[in-house]
Computed example of a mutant assay.
Amino acid sequence: MPTKNINASTRPYYVAVANEEQVFNAAFRQGLSILLKGPTGCGKTRFVEAMAHDLGRPLITVSCHDDLTTADLVGRFHLNGGKTEWVDGPLTRAVREGAICYLDEVVEARQDTTVVLHPLADHRRQLPLERLGVTLDAAPGFCLVVSYNPGYQSVLKDLKDSTRQRMVAIEFGYPTADVEEKIVEKESGIGHEQAAALVRLGQAIRRLETGGLREVASTRVLIATGRLASAGLTLSEAARAAIAGPLSDDPNITSGLNKMIDVYLPTS
C-alpha cells in the first residue's frame, strides 16, 4: 500500500487561494477532522503538506484504492522469526504519534474500510483495535484529513453521509490566473511569459465541453509541461507530451488539443 511519511524541513510551496489555511488551523485546534474536496491536481496534497509543516506535525499519507482493507490502515499480525507480532498500519501510527494522517482519494477505498474512521472523526477521537482488544485514544496533535474529487462521484463511490457529517469541509478549485502563473513559474523554473501562456492554455481547456475529455489541464500538468520546457523542449513540444497525451486517448480529441496548443503556444 503506497504510504509516505513527510517531515519537511522547509515549507512546501503553497499559495493560499481563499481562507483554507485559517479553516484548517481552526479545525486542527478543535480536534476536528477535515474533508478536502476538489479536482485532481489543484493542490490538495501540497496544501496538507504545507499545513503539517506550519503546525509542526509529522504527516503520514495513504493513497487509497479499492483493495484497501481495514487491516492495511490499522495493522495486522506478521510472522517474524517464528514469532507472531503486531505491526501498526499507517493510521494507527498516526494515532499513536500525534501525526496528521492524510487519506488521499478516500472514496476509492471500500466503504466497509472507511467505517473504521468514524470513532476517530467524531468527539471520541478513538481507534478500536479489535484484534488486540484495545482502544487507542488519539495522541495530542493527531488530525485526520481525507480528500476526494467530486468529479468522480458515483452511486458506488461516494462518502457515506455518516462519514461526511463528522468532518469540516474545505472546497478547492483551480487558482485564479495570476496565482496559477506564479505557481507554474516557481515550480517549473520557466519565465513568467511562458507560465502565463501555459495558464491561458489550461484555462481554455477547462472551458471545453466534451464528454471524451475525462480530465482537464490541472495545475499539476501545467507544472509538468513547464518542467519539460525547462529541460530543453519547446513549450509546444512539452505541452503535447504533458497535456495532450495524458488527457485523452481519443484521436479526435487529442488532435483538437494539439490545435489548441498551436494557437496558444506557437512554436516561435
Rank of each mutant, 00 (worst) to 15 (best):
M1W: 08
M1F: 14
N5Q: 14
P12F: 09
Y14H: 05
V15R: 02
V15E: 11
A16M: 06
A16N: 09
V17P: 00
E21G: 03
V23C: 12
A26C: 09
F28P: 00
Q30M: 14
G31D: 05
G31Y: 02
S33H: 01
S33N: 05
G41A: 08
G41W: 02
C42N: 04
V48P: 00
E49T: 01
E49W: 00
A52I: 07
D54R: 03
G56R: 02
L59N: 05
L59H: 02
I60F: 00
T61R: 14
T61Q: 14
S63N: 14
D66K: 08
D66Y: 06
D67C: 07
D67Q: 10
A71K: 02
R76H: 10
H78F: 11
L79V: 13
G82A: 10
K83P: 03
T84A: 12
W86F: 13
V87G: 04
G89M: 12
A94K: 01
C101G: 02
D104H: 07
V106E: 02
V106N: 00
V107K: 00
E108M: 06
R110M: 14
D112K: 01
T114P: 04
L120S: 07
L120V: 11
A121C: 07
H123Y: 03
H123M: 12
Q126Y: 03
Q126R: 14
L129C: 07
L129Q: 07
R131V: 12
L132H: 04
V134F: 00
L136V: 10
A138N: 05
G141M: 07
G141V: 05
F142Q: 03
C143F: 01
C143V: 02
L144T: 10
L144V: 13
Y148I: 09
N149Y: 05
G151K: 08
Q153D: 15
V155S: 15
V155G: 15
L156K: 12
K160C: 06
D161A: 15
Q165I: 11
M167C: 08
A169E: 12
I170S: 04
Y174F: 15
P175M: 11
A177H: 09
A177C: 09
E185S: 09
K186G: 05
E187R: 13
S188Q: 06
G189H: 03
E193R: 04
Q194Y: 04
A195D: 00
A196Q: 08
R200T: 08
Q203A: 15
A204N: 14
R207P: 00
R207Y: 05
R207F: 05
L208N: 06
E209P: 01
E215G: 07
E215L: 15
E215N: 13
A217D: 05
T219A: 15
T219P: 02
R220P: 01
V221P: 00
T225Y: 02
T225A: 14
G226S: 11
R227F: 07
R227Y: 06
L228Q: 11
S230Q: 13
A239Y: 00
A239N: 04
A242P: 01
A242V: 00
G245Y: 10
P246V: 10
L247M: 04
D249M: 09
N252H: 11
N252G: 08
I253K: 04
T254C: 11
L257Y: 02
L257A: 05
N258I: 09
K259V: 09
K259S: 13
Y264V: 07
L265C: 06
T267E: 15
T267G: 11
